[in-house]
Amino acid sequence: MNGIHDMGGMDGFGTVDTRDDGVVFHGKWEGQVMAASRVMGAVGAWNIDQGRYGIEQLPPHRYLTSYYHRWLARCEWALVQYGYADADEIAAGHALRPGRAPPRGKFTTANLDRISHRGSYLRPPQAPARFAIGDRVLARNMHPKGHTRLPRYVRGHVGVVERLHGCQVFPDSAGMGEGDNPQWLYTVRFEGRDLWGADADPTLKVSVEAFEPYLEPA
């Protein structure tokens, strides 16, 4: 979806506040939201793409709050959306009926390994890769209403395949609850001037990770 989350190239957000106090969580609640969200992912209640899609659907004024406020809103929404709590329970602040058994059972300290390392999104290929390193490819001009990971700023532009990352879970399917539908994943590199015009920094090259359905031969 063409949401507020797709920020590459936007103006108006000011300068970067580079200050860093080295603190991981600003307020205990931030860590608690992170932990609650990771738990629900680890028990299999929703996948990473469904989680991202939950955040993308926040209305812009709610998206433009803070990172962990978005996580909190997403977690409340996803619990209801995927059947792990009801809206009246969120409002009441406690459970009013028994929970739904998650696919991977209760998360305890014995399961910490599931969150302390990234999982693998590699899957067996469904077909040979269509593109090879060095190929020129066009990022499709596509505007799906659902979840996608092709940012707007590269759509309609030609780049070069720089890396091949194997066949991986396709977010556009997984985020919509339509299964892994594995697709080849490429790093596609664009010239800054192709993306941003003749006035752009001539030394800039930008890449995105692009799944094969995002691309056409150029």
Partner: peptide, 17 residues
């Protein structure tokens, strides 16, 4: 509220969080 619901519904426990 979020933590309470997760714990009461048995999805996790306070020590894990």
């Amino acid at each position: 509220a979020l933590q309470t619901i997760l714990i009461e519904k048995g999805y996790t426990d306070p020590a894990a969080l």
